[in-house]
Design a protein around this nucleic acid. Structure first.
Length: 886
DNA sequence: GTCATCACG
DNA sequence: ACGTACGTGATGACG
């Protein structure tokens, strides 16, 4: 007998998940009738995945029948207090059902029961009848149904990110058997379903107890074995509640379901109906997939065939001149393009693609000429990556027109990915797979030996570049980001590429000398700590350290983390007065950090040939428009403590006699705020060259002109200024400077009275975010804030703070990027080279005789990068190493 | 892979 | 009543 495979889907839960997974794209998913379709779309994506992997013979989607169920009869407030379902979501349920009908899948609901119970009941029947069952849901509770013949697949973040729970996986992940999930829930209760368990029992204790006694009943049978006094009291007091909660959590396996398994035979797509439905929904990509049904299967379902030619030395001459431009992609496995092997490339246009594994062909005519010509416009994915890699082959890339990665990032920072396939999918183009699909991941990641697989993937990438150029440019135009793209981000990519290639020289001998000194110091402190603790333990383990400090030594617990005692700096500083061990641990930590991250970490990445480190700047990662730096991160080299700062002595110019020169913007974020808010008082302070923190202190503390601003008062005012930039809250400020929440609120109120323009600015940004769903920087960089209208206080508050902060932080990022682009031109007749950017600071190396020139030139380029209502201020330093240049 | 910690602006 | 400062990356521990 053929294998029988049953697919059971929790319709409500999956529709919910799909809706929220595609929530940011809600605006893009509407059909011509104005109906939202994101949940239907997401549901169908998930369904395709499951149909392809499970290949079911039988299938059913269960829905909840209504608000009242046997559970609400047991417990009035079951699922009480839930926010009303958004209308954009409710309107989609009927269409999900229509979709299912068109796909030949039955739907079912049963009065008084939830979808869970229908699924539980049918899964039981299926097991008895020898089926293999797959349950799909977004709700972890259903993992209680996992058994040897039943897998529970939970969609995690996205619609395609699915986790499969077998009994072994449940055990591994949750620490209990599937049957014990209900005991856990009985003890813990369920916030989202709104019923309590036992007071004081959270996930950790619940797993512990159930592990020890097997079940809730087991716990109460051995109640006298429980030594923790409070816990026992709670268990006794909440006995009834625990039993009720367990009952509520238990999925029915014998609901009066009137469907028999035989009726659930999966019919497959009802083609005509489905085409009509897709048309009604405006699902173009799903429609196009239908037309390829029945063709030879490809590596990834849904991809149409693509043709290409393999390029060789013999047919290089056949390449056209590409007068209308071309698409080009250079393939590398691995993120670090300074080192990664180049695996092949594709070039072409007008759906004619040439591919090869031999990247040396690129160095030959006519390819090298094409790549280096700014007359031949090129569409690429990640221009910086491409530029750096081609540079390794002696090719200087020019003529880049559309960088899909960069354009896509500007359109929406939120869902941007480094994978061409994924980015294409974001823009509704589904004819290219992700690298993970084609190359695999982890240890198995590799360029396929099969030419057909590899080359068609390359050709599909190139075609995606061709297809997406227009939509990307149109999107940028719509967002008024054309200038941002052409005049800032695209030129920036090449400036960064050249900085990365230049690298910065690091003296290994200097680091090694520091390292051996630190090793000695660490050994010494380690011994002292062991003596104070009375035993040896791993100081690097917060868990072991917490045990020593707070259990063995009985120090007062200041703060806890999710997993145990906090041993962070603030905590250790508080207990240091009573316990010298805390002081020693702080010293140990400080040195260990410098040692492992900076001494050892940097030594690992010094290039053996040129003795330099070549970081990579990530240009499409941050949500604000800042850069980030990896492999190594050169934007967080220590400076605040003397021991750490010494690391900078190892950063030197590449030639003897040269100097390191650095310039930084002074208070750029507050100046940007003064500009954007037009606040007269704040602007006056900057125009008159005042110390802004002192000026703020005078204002918020209502000081007379002759009163002296003490360092402590200035420190507090500085914290308030920072708080404003971060999107102020009284709580946050009170924590930061150790005052009461009430005092903090006072400071903020006074601040806003004194700087009314700033108050108006913050209100305006929050309001704009509410109305438009995004905020913008000076250069029209955009950040979407989908949580701004969230019903969850925390998420909403966070979005509001972000609405205030992002235009400030992001505009500062715009400004330094403009300065960097102009800087290259300003330096063209000098030997001086720009090496690093650290958010508000630029670092150069130059011959000593150019320092005088730089000291004038660099600040003038930086402070004229943009015309604000107040002046920008730049400070410079230089010296024989980075250590002195500050 | 996730957490806690700590380095920077 | 809710429970927080904004933006990052690297490390070691631990599951």
């Amino acid at each position: 007998m053929a294998e029988k495979r049953l697919l059971l889907i929790d319709g409500n839960s999956v529709t919910f998940k799909a809706f929220f997974a595609l929530y940011t794209a809600l605006g893009k998913f509407t059909n011509s009738d104005g109906l939202h379709t994101n949940a239907v779309y997401g549901f169908n994506t998930m369904l395709e995945t499951m149909l392809n992997t499970v290949k079911p013979t039988h299938a059913l989607v269960a829905f909840d029948a209504g608000k009242t169920t046997f559970r609400t009869k047991m417990y009035d407030d079951y699922k009480g207090g839930r926010a009303k379902t958004a209308p954009e979501l409710s309107e989609q349920f009927p269409y999900v059902k229509k979709l299912l009908a068109a796909r030949g899948i039955q739907t079912y609901e049963l009065p008084n029961f939830e979808a869970d119970d229908i699924i539980g009941t049918l899964a039981k029947q299926a097991e008895d009848a020898g089926f293999t069952t797959t349950i799909v849901t977004g709700d972890r509770d259903l993992t209680q149904l996992a058994d040897d013949h039943t897998t529970v697949s939970i969609s995690k973040k996205g619609v395609s990110d699915i986790e499969h729970y077998t009994p072994a996986y449940v055990q591994e992940k949750m620490g209990v058997t599937p049957q014990q999930i209900i005991d856990i829930k009985g003890l813990q209760g369920d916030n989202s379903d709104n019923y309590p368990g036992v007071t004081g029992v959270g996930p950790k204790r619940a797993v512990d107890l159930v592990g020890k006694y097997g079940s809730i009943e087991g716990i109460y049978d051995h109640i006298d074995d429980i030594t923790a006094k409070k816990l026992k009291e709670h268990l006794v007091a909440d006995h009834d509640q625990a039993l009720l909660a367990k009952q509520l959590a238990t999925i029915k396996r014998d609901a009066p379901v009137e469907k028999t398994l035989d009726e659930l035979t999966y019919e497959g797509d009802q083609t005509e109906e489905l085409v009509a439905f897709y048309q009604q929904m405006n699902f173009r990509t799903f429609l196009s997939k239908m037309s390829v049904d029945g063709e030879a299967p490809t590596a990834t379902p849904g991809l149409k065939d693509i043709s290409y030619q393999e390029l060789t030395v013999a047919n290089l001459g056949d390449l056209p001149a590409f007068d209308d431009g071309c698409e080009f992609h250079l393939e590398m496995l691995g993120d670090n393009y300074h080192l990664a092997n180049m695996a092949g490339f594709v070039i072409g246009h007008n759906d004619q693609w040439w591919v090869s594994r031999d990247v040396n062909l690129l160095t030959q005519a006519p390819l090298k000429g094409l790549l280096e010509s700014d007359k031949v416009s090129k569409q690429v994915f990640d221009a910086k990556r491409t530029y750096v890699a081609l540079h390794r082959l002696g090719i200087t890339l020019a003529g880049v027109d559309c960088d899909l990665l960069l354009g896509s990032y500007l359109l929406n920072t939120y869902d941007n990915s480094n994978d061409l396939g994924r980015v294409a999918m974001e823009h509704g183009y589904d004819q290219v797979a992700t690298d993970e699909d084609v190359y695999g991941k982890g240890a198995k990641e590799a360029i396929p030996d099969d030419d057909e697989v590899f080359f068609s993937h390359l050709a599909r990438k190139a075609r995606a570049l061709e297809q997406l150029r227009t939509p990307i440019f149109e999107g940028l135009k719509e967002h008024e980001q054309t200038q941002l793209y052409h005049e800032i981000e695209l030129p920036m990519a090449f400036v960064l590429a050249r900085m990365e290639i230049a690298g910065i020289a690091v003296k290994a001998s200097e680091l090694e000398a520091m390292g051996s000194k630190f090793t000695e110091q660490l050994a010494e402190i380690e011994q002292t700590i062991y003596q104070e603790a009375g035993e040896e333990f791993n100081i690097d383990s917060p868990k072991q350290l917490g045990h020593i400090l707070f259990e063995k030594m009985g120090l007062p617990v200041i703060k806890k983390t999710k997993t145990g005692y906090s041993t962070a700096v603030g905590v250790l500083e508080k207990v240091a007065a009573d316990a010298p061990i805390a002081e020693n641990i702080l010293t140990y930590r400080k040195i260990a950090k410098i040692q492992s991250t900076y001494v050892e970490g940097l030594l690992k990445v010094i290039h053996p040939d040129d003795h330099k480190v070549h970081t990579r700047y990530l240009q499409t990662l941050t949500q604000t428009g800042r850069l980030s730096s990896v492999d190594p991160n050169l934007q967080n080299i220590p400076v605040r403590t003397e021991e750490g700062r010494a690391i900078r002595k190892a950063f030197v110019p590449r030639h003897p006699g040269w100097q390191i020169f650095s310039s930084d913007y002074s208070q750029i974020e507050l100046r940007v705020l003064a500009h954007m808010s037009h606040d007269a008082n704040m602007q006056a302070a900057f125009r008159e060259g005042e110390d802004i923190h002192a000026a703020t202190a005078r204002r918020i503390f209502k000081m007379g002109p002759d009163e002296e601003v003490t360092p402590n008062i200035r420190r507090q005012a500085k914290a308030v200024n920072f708080g404003i930039v971060y999107g102020i809250s009284d709580f946050g400020l009170s924590q930061n400077i150790g005052i009461s929440r009430k005092q903090a609120k006072n400071f903020i109120d006074t601040y806003f009275e004194e700087y009314p323009g700033v108050k108006a600015y913050t209100d305006r940004m929050v309001q704009q975010a509410h109305e438009l769903g995004y905020v913008e920087t000076i250069a029209h960089r955009r950040r979407y804030l989908p949580d701004i209208n969230s019903r969850n206080f925390n998420q909403r508050s966070f979005a509001e703070r972000t609405a205030m902060n992002t235009p400030i932080q992001g505009s500062a990022a715009d400004i330094i990027k403009i300065a960097m682009i102009r800087m290259e031109d300003a330096l063209k007749d000098l030997q001086a080279t720009m090496l690093l950017q650290v958010h508000d600071e630029l670092i150069f190396e130059a011959p000593a005789e150019e320092i005088e020139t730089l000291a004038k030139l660099v600040p003038s380029v930086m402070d004229s990068a943009i015309d604000l209502e107040i002046p920008l201020k730049v400070e410079s330093h230089f010296g024989p190493t980075w250590y002195e240049a500050k």
